[in-house]
Amino acid sequence: MDIIVCLFLFAGLFFFTGGSVGILRFPDFYSRLHPAGKLATLGSFSAIAALALFNLHQFSLAALLTSVKILLLVVFVFLTSPTATHAIVDAGVRAGLTPWTKGEKRR
């Protein structure tokens, strides 16, 4: 049980690491959204699922309710993360930022 929890938690932390490094390394605003939008979503999913699983160690009604609440958080993240990404990219497009193309300088 503990091994599964640790596995999921470390997978989530690994995805979070990828997201953070990607935000630094990618060349422009549009491509930075790819790691920020996707890796953060899956990182939250696996880390939060691990914590919900761990919370069910001492099984009771209250623990079950808390776990379902934590899973509700996952659903919420899955609904809002693409929407927030889309809102940010929309602001960028309306501001007239042009996408980075191959061979240009890093912005």
Partner: peptide
């Protein structure tokens, strides 16, 4: 599909010559 996407972006992120691999377009 989300798992595949994340592994792909993760591969791109940690690739040392990432700037040559990506080719963004609309």
């Amino acid at each position: 599909q989300i798992m595949k996407a994340n592994l792909h972006v993760l591969y791109l992120t940690f690739h040392p010559r990432m700037m040559e691999l990506i080719d963004p377009k609309i």
